[in-house]
């Protein structure tokens, strides 16, 4: 794999930014400052980073209710994200979307999506735009393992195969669909299920940035050759609950500790690049500090920012009416 130093630093920057951002949001949620529901991405950072690292603003992603990580990886501004999560003026969606609908279409981020399985058909549409315009862009449909049991996912997968659309289905197998173990809700292996639709499908370790990135490069090349969609099942357990405040009675007591010790995507990345000598510890330590400051500033500013003006209630329903 031919990643240069800048790309490796960027991969780590994305993952650290997600970790730091989500950690602070978790703290703020517990403190009662975050309105509504919030679903955090900690433990799955290598998936968003591996999928999005080589995408441009002209490539698209359609995300899930657990979408902060995708947003950050796709290059959305974290100050705007923080404002949005606290429903403040100047947020990416003017405070009208919140955590579950956060979007920045100008960055190709077509929205988090509060409907499980809602995003996959949209990714087909974005891919159709790229194909119709004869461009070598791709659209990624993020879907949790829970979303793969929705008919929308089946329809989107079949449609993408039939129309040879440049879609990449990034399935994040994180162990649970809400409060139900995936072993209960799934009748078969998701990689095999995806392959049954007639597309290339691969299962990777979703805690290993390099494994995800490699699979993504192959998927993009396949799409660019006009061969249609690919499914990449990324296995990476979430560390937090379905939502913040979830008591997680369904989880083995020591599961999260085990994940922190053995399946931390940032630690796995760090160990690999240091062992190979591609980066030195000081490079990564410096990024850790920079990002802590960046996230602290973004969230502190968002906490102090004003709420949307009351007039905003009635704007943006239609372009014109």
């Amino acid at each position: 794999m031919n990643l240069d130093k800048q790309q490796l630093l960027q991969a780590y920057r994305i993952m650290r930014r997600i970790r730091e951002f989500e950690t602070r949001i978790s703290y703020e949620f517990a403190a009662g400052t975050v309105p509504g529901m919030t679903h955090l991405y900690i433990g799955q950072e290598a998936v968003a980073a591996g999928i999005c690292l080589t995408l441009s603003d002209e490539d698209y992603i359609a995300s899930t209710h657990r979408g902060h990580g995708h947003c950050i990886a796709k290059g959305c501004d974290i100050a705007g994200m923080a404002l949005e999560l606290f429903r403040k003026e100047g947020g990416l969606c003017k405070g009208k979307g919140g955590s579950m609908h956060i979007a920045d279409v100008s960055k190709g981020m077509l929205g988090a999506n509060a409907i499980v399985g809602g995003a996959s058909p949209l990714a087909c549409g974005a891919a159709l735009t790229a194909k119709t315009r004869g461009k070598n862009n791709v659209a990624v449909a993020f879907a949790g393992d829970g979303a793969t049991n929705q008919g929308t996912t089946f329809e989107a997968m079949n449609m993408a195969v039939v129309l040879k659309l440049p879609v990449i289905f990034a399935i994040e197998s994180n162990g649970y669909g809400e409060h139900t173990g995936s072993g209960y809700a799934q009748g078969n292996d998701l990689t095999e299920r995806s392959a049954a639709f007639g597309m290339a499908a691969v299962k990777v370790d979703g805690t290993d940035f390099f494994a995800v990135y490699q699979a993504m490069q192959e998927a993009i090349a396949r799409a660019n050759r006009g061969e249609g969609p690919t499914a990449i099942e990324c296995v990476a357990m979430r560390w937090h609950g379905h939502f913040e405040g979830d008591p997680q009675h369904y989880r083995p007591k020591d599961e999260v500790k085990r994940l922190r010790d053995t399946a931390d995507p940032l630690k796995i990345f760090r160990d690999k690049v240091l062992a190979k000598g591609d980066l030195v510890a000081a490079d990564l330590d410096q990024l850790d500090e920079e990002i802590l400051t960046e996230v602290t500033n973004a969230v502190d500013a968002a906490l102090e920012a004003p709420q949307p003006a009351p007039e905003e209630l009635l704007t943006d329903v239609y372009v014109s009416y």
Binding site: Y60, A62, V105, L110, G118, S120, P121, L122, A123, C124, G125, A126, A127, L128, T129, A130, T132, R133, A139, T152, E155, A156, M159
Partner: peptide
Amino acid sequence: GAAAGAAMTG
């Protein structure tokens, strides 16, 4: 969904 995704992308 494909129509909506295509519409929001141009």
